[in-house]
Design a protein around this nucleic acid. Structure first.
Length: 408
DNA sequence: ATCATCACG
DNA sequence: ACGTACGTGATGATA
């Protein structure tokens, strides 16, 4: 490598990152509108829920203390109430994972978990959004273009890329995010973009075939892992976890821990996966080898991340470098693809009143006047799916609604 | 300033 | 025997 041009970075900058600054600036300036009336109502509701939960915890613990202090909470649970610590040889923690394992030991544990959930919603989301919303109810996030090691964007003040969705009660907050008067939200997200990138980069015939058949990928992988044409729901869940694990370079121990099964059984799933998708195995080994030799990993479009941990004498540091090297091309190529899609969508929206307002890594949201909604939905799906041509199709599912919650 | 925790893809 | 899934940002406690 002698010049930026030879490295490909200049092209990436000139054709993607520089033009994207205008798109991001426009998105920030437009902003996302909030339902301020609902925001006030939810703040009252969650303040009451947090207060009630606090009183119940004091009652069950037998005294008042700062529930927000992990140190004080640990003393109450493990020293005073003498609850069993569920893990061997690890620092004492009060994380949801630990509390979940001992929630049958004492009723206060479940109440603490509920308090944590309720106060997260209250402080981070309800009060947090209130602080940054304008009098018109619009929040203007900042999209950070120079923040991540993989080429993803990040979002701050407020972070609109981590609004709750996994828990039903948390997901209800998405009703706060609404289209402007007379408008609707048009939202589309990529289906398993990182696994599709894996199929492309590895060239694995079996994985490519699964996507070409348009089948549900987790079910398809479950068929391969378990040798059955009709996998059970449990087998599909295992396959789904394996699919995610592959993207993160996880170990047999990590998979076993997630699935609650012995490391040996987890190892047999991983071995089976690699025997059925051999090019995936070869690809991941090659990525690590190449990163060790060159000092960096790179995306399909030449974005690079220096990974200096690969030659560390400390095996933990080295292990981290290896997992980062396996993940980087997948996460990074996916980030490149949605950036290309954003540029295309932004271009296609010229002359319309519809506005791109949010990106959440594999999802884009447009605020569209009702009369433009169908056109916006059509072009959003089209430009996302045709952003680049891979060895497998890119699939984006599109939805519309008055609020983000309604986009389903 | 750093840690622990927890929200997202 | 070791420690164990990648990438982020916000909050409250503590030093």
């Amino acid at each position: 490598m002698h010049t930026l041009e030879e490295s490909g970075m200049n092209k990436l900058y000139r054709e993607m990152e520089l033009p994207l600054t205008e798109v991001l600036f426009d998105m920030q300036k437009t902003g996302f509108k909030l339902d301020l009336k609902l925001l006030e109502e939810l703040k009252r509701k969650y303040t009451a829920l947090a207060d009630e939960s606090t009183e119940r915890i004091y009652e069950l613990a037998g005294r008042r203390f700062n529930i927000n202090s992990p140190k004080q909470l640990g003393i109450v649970l493990f020293d005073e109430l003498k609850l069993p610590y569920p893990k061997k040889r690890s620092e004492r923690s009060t994380s949801a994972e630990i509390l979940g394992a001992i929630k049958d030991a004492h009723p206060v544990v479940e109440e603490v978990l509920r308090y944590r959930f309720v106060s997260k919603i209250k402080s981070t989301y309800l009060e947090g959004l209130s602080k940054v919303a304008g009098t018109d109810g619009v929040v203007h996030t900042e999209f950070n273009q120079m923040q991540t090691s993989t080429g993803r964007l990040s979002s701050s003040e407020p972070n609109l890329q981590n609004i709750p969705v996994r828990e039903e009660d948390g997901k209800a907050l998405r009703a706060l995010f609404i289209a402007r008067d007379g408008n609707v939200l048009v939202n589309a997200d990529y289906s398993q973009i990182e696994l599709r990138v894996m199929a492309h980069l590895s060239g694995d015939e079996n994985l490519i075939a699964a996507y070409m058949h348009g089948a549900d990928i987790h079910t398809a992988v479950a068929r391969e892992l378990f040798g059955t044409s009709e996998p059970t729901a449990k087998q599909r869940r295992v396959a789904k976890t394996v699919n995610f694990g592959i993207i993160y370079g996880m170990s047999a121990y990590g998979l076993g821990d997630r699935l609650g099964i012995p490391t040996s059984e987890a190892k047999s799933y991983i071995d089976k996966y690699f025997s059925r998708f051999p090019r995936v195995h070869e690809y991941l080994e090659e990525v690590v080898k190449s990163a060790r030799e060159k000092g960096y990993a790179e995306s399909l479009f030449g974005r690079r991340r220096v990974i200096s941990e690969l030659n560390s004498r400390d095996y933990r540091t080295r292990g981290f470098g290896e997992r980062a090297a396996m993940n980087m091309p997948l996460q990074s190529t996916a980030a490149d693809i949605i950036k290309i899609a954003m540029l295309k969508v932004y271009g296609a929206l010229k002359g319309m009143r519809s506005k791109l307002i949010l990106q959440v890594h594999d999802e884009l949201i447009i605020d569209a006047p009702a009369d433009e909604a169908d056109a916006a939905a059509e072009l959003l799906k089209r430009e996302m799916e045709s952003a680049v041509t891979l060895k497998v199709p890119l699939v984006a599912s599109v939805n519309t609604g008055k609020s983000w919650l309604d986009c389903k």
